[in-house]
Design a protein around this nucleic acid. Structure first.
Lengths: 238, 238
DNA sequence: GTAATAGTGTCTGTGAGACACTATAAA
DNA sequence: TTTATAGTGTCTCACAGACACTATTAC
């Protein structure tokens, strides 16, 4: 790790702070992201991603889960339903004007859109459409982090079964298709989509019940996520 | 980044060190990785990945390129031929027994296997087969980092044109196929492989010349890497 | 009735996999 | 000659995309 050259003295090193930032995505009608409005300088009043510093006694992964729980207000019962993975690390020298901060960004995909009552400043948290947030801009380098997170989510829908988690505890085939269409920003052919999803073993399971959607129409079979995690061959976006 | 809660004091924070570690891969006959043998405790005499600390005035990415140049001895002329990308960040509390170190691992793919004459301890650097290194074990959590790096490389060959860079400045179709087979550890069907590679626009370009390989046989067309970076549809490993 | 959604059937084109065949080199 | 590699041809099967058709609900 240090190249074995012996140049090692903890006190002599300048202070690095290590943080985690979260790209928390959910689908309502469009793709939405959990944002905060900063209450202090720098970037006071500007939209930013939730996050915080990694504590001395917690791993980076533990810090990400802790921040996720704090910002969403989700409890131990609902948190396991959220998918959390490391996204990338951002370490430009001047990305934070206050001091040297290296942040490990994480991507979270939530089946629901919990009211952001938790966290240290609840009123400043809000779910907002990704498209609007990206066009209006974010504090620090959070524009790029959000863009990278959205791209990761888009790519992961292609070869994993994560969409079934994003679609909620249960869902109709139309609702699952709507998740793909919202994340990818495209329209899919209904019949081919259904065939593909049902052809992947363990992607979805029928619950046996049926449900009628908003605009009427025939009752649809209700599914839940199955045990599979990957899709082979993938479902490639058009 | 700090959640806007104002709990901010650089001096009050415990010292985090931020490091970069490198998984440098090249294909000779098998898939090989650049390793060092640690000269100091902890893990003195144990195989490890090259790496080092991020300096106060350099970005994480700059530190990765600097370490890559130091460890491989490659100069400004050859370094651009190496593919370098961020792999993942490892932040367990006790991953380094000396102090809290968060390391940003990077993956490097080199077309050649330069003699590791550079670095601070040249004699301790060596190219070794990935399979053997993984079975013998590595210092710190470098086992997992190497395994993650190899898996990333395997996945990237599927949907990018990186194999053409790994195959060297120029290569025959048989040599390019050998790169895929070494990284994936499988055998591919020659005719179908050739057709697939040639069907991707910009994957490879013919140089016009021909070359005869080790075991004789008909002279083969020599190719070089083309401008394309992605493969659609992908070349999926069996 | 119309509009909207769910579910199924079917045709076509692309491409991967398997395998056969010819050509050109070294030993 | 044998052996090894390069290059091409062809057949089959899986699957994505497009589109048509019926069924069931709300209005």
């Amino acid at each position: 790790m240090d190249g074995g050259d012996g140049r090692y003295d903890a006190r002599a090193r300048p202070p690095f702070a290590v943080a985690v930032d979260l790209v928390v995505l959910a689908v309502h009608d469009q793709l939405e992201v959990l944002t905060i409005t900063r209450g202090i300088e720098p970037f006071e009043g500007v939209t930013a991603l939730p996050g915080g510093f990694v504590g001395p006694a917690e791993s980076v992964e533990e810090a990400a889960w802790r921040e996720l729980a704090e910002e969403t207000g989700l409890g131990p019962a609902e948190l396991p339903e959220v998918h959390l993975e490391q996204l990338a690390t951002y370490g430009a020298v001047d990305r934070d004007p206050r001091m040297r901060v290296v942040t490990v960004a994480h991507l979270a995909l939530s089946p629901t859109r919990p009211e952001p009552t938790g966290g240290t400043d609840a009123a400043a948290s809000a779910w907002r459409p990704v498209e609007g947030v990206l066009s209006e801009g974010l504090a620090f380098d959070h524009d790029r982090i959000l863009a990278d997170g959205v791209e990761r989510a888009r790519a992961k829908l292609e070869y994993t079964t994560l969409a079934a988690r994003l679609a909620g505890p249960d869902f109709t085939m139309g609702e699952l298709q709507a998740v793909f269409e919202a994340v990818w920003g495209v329209e899919l052919e209904r019949a081919n989509f259904r065939r593909k999803v049902l052809s992947v073993p363990g992607f979805v399971e029928s619950t046996g019940s049926r449900r009628i959607g908003r605009g009427g129409g025939a009752p649809a079979t209700v599914f839940r996520a199955g045990p599979a995690t990957t899709m082979l061959p993938p479902l490639i976006r058009p």
